[in-house]
Design a binder for these strands. Structure first.
Lengths: 227, 227
DNA sequence: ACCTGAACACCGTTCAAGT
DNA sequence: ACCTGAACACCGTTCAAGT
């Protein structure tokens, strides 16, 4: 098959422009999202990055919202489903959701999509399946498992969304603490007395705290009511 | 001072246009949000509703984001802080957060703002103070109270946001259940087996379930670690 | 079958000019 | 001090026209 006389068949001179495809559109969109934040996810910018006009994209994607759903799922590809041997379901769940959070924060804008979009792409489904497996291991079944899944993903997504959108808006912690400090402590005594606790933000520890609170809540509700 | 000869001084003929003010801008914006969804919250539409050009708004508001923050707080005015006598902190908290959820869903778009924006307006602060009071009653203090507050508000806001944005996108429950039904149950056995539970959606009951799970989680973490 | 240009109906924001 | 018009730099989407 490998005829030596045809050695220099050379890469057949590629057309100046590679043809478009859903795949490279989604990939380009994801890169733009990473480099420019959620304003990078615009039909026009994606088109420009691909050296074409916005109308060209509509051959591969029916509208901006559908593209967003694809981008979300593509982003989910890099979530690591923790699968070490001999590690408790709880730790594996935490590690995985932490990875999910990290991915969402790496691509600002994807977090918004995660709340907007029904996660039915293959990578999202893999994550969903994984979480349900861990809950099953924990003895959480049926309605508790379904609603618990929802609660856990909602938690991680909204933490990421809150974080990302405040970062994009340039909301500094200082601005928040300044506004709390200026409060009338007669009118808002609880807020005033909890000032420093409200501002504290080791994100990592806080995220874990919330996750464990939710998990314990789910477990306890289940054992109490046997739902 | 009241000279009878000047009786018919009459309401001095008002100018054809009432002067603008931050107040009526915010009120108009809130109405548009209610009637048109989150796309109603645009400088141009608000201006048109006030029969002026968009540039006029910038006298009273520095930009769209600041206006959004005002609108969010104005929306919070109608949250009912449950204050019946002899009712447990838990029920009062549930009722109040349910009212918060209802308000957020009545104004689609406000839910997004609640996640975007630091809630430092007077009505938001009143709600914050109220929740901290109830947590205090429940014996939840310090870091647990601060983080618990955050978790509860994040929960209600994100449930509303998810609901509202799916409503705006026209995502039907049927679409979701159809996509779950079409799944390969070898690849996603857990999802397949929990199909009906995943789709179930008595919003009310589900919201309450999540809220109680979170509260129990907070209470238990506190008693366990004494944070 | 795919790509393009031009157009339509929108955005937020600025700024010189008017009263 | 307030309001206006016009402009700038953006959006998503459509559609007739080209290859």
């Amino acid at each position: 098959m490998n005829n030596p006389t045809r050695t220099i068949i050379s890469r057949r001179s590629r057309p100046a422009k590679e043809p478009l495809s859903k795949d490279i559109i989604v990939k380009t969109a994801l890169e733009l999202l990473k480099s420019e934040g959620s304003s990078g996810l615009s039909m026009r910018k994606i088109a420009k990055a691909l050296d074409t006009g916005p109308s060209s994209l509509y051959v591969y994607v029916t509208n901006h919202q559908e593209l967003s759903a694809f981008v979300l799922d593509a982003g989910m590809e890099s979530v690591v489903l923790s699968n070490e041997e001999g590690v408790s379901w709880e730790i594996r769940l935490y590690e995985t959701l932490h990875s999910y959070l990290t991915v969402l924060m790496e691509f600002p804008g994807v977090a918004g999509l995660a709340l907007n979009t029904i996660p039915i792409g293959p990578h999202s489904l893999a994550l969903t399946e994984y979480i349900l497996e861990r809950l099953h291991e924990a003895g959480i079944h049926s309605t508790s498992a379904a609603w618990g899944l929802d609660l856990l993903m909602l938690y991680a997504s909204s933490v990421a969304f809150e974080q990302a959108s405040r970062a994009e808006n340039g909301t500094t912690l200082q601005a928040i603490s300044a506004s709390y400090r200026s409060l009338n402590d007669k009118q808002y005594p609880m807020i005033a007395s909890l000032q420093s606790e409200l501002i504290t933000s080791d994100g990592e520890e806080r995220f874990r705290w919330g996750l464990e609170a939710i998990l314990q809540g789910i477990l306890q509700r289940q054992s109490k009511f046997g739902i």
